[in-house]
Amino acid sequence: MKIDWAALGSVFGVSLVITVAVVGVFTLGIVGLSRHERAVADGGSAAPAVAGAYACFAACAAVVAYGIYLIVA
């Protein structure tokens, strides 16, 4: 019997890194949007925060797109 520990290990590593990265980046995006929301409520605006937020969401969308690619391929 041969257990493919290397494959299991890489599943563990890859899953951990991608999950934490996606959730982290996504949370940063939400932090950016929240900052903008507060700034607007105070009568100002926070354009850099919005731009950063969209960059974060774009990165997450790219990961999701890659996920769909993996499912289809």
Binding site: V20, V22, V23, G24, I30, V31, L33, E37, R38
Partner: peptide, 25 residues
Amino acid sequence: AAMLATRLSYKLGAKRAEGKAAEKG
């Protein structure tokens, strides 16, 4: 993976990811 991601999410978002925008996000 979910536990670490949850921790990170709460740490990053503490007091900063709140309100309608966060909810929608």
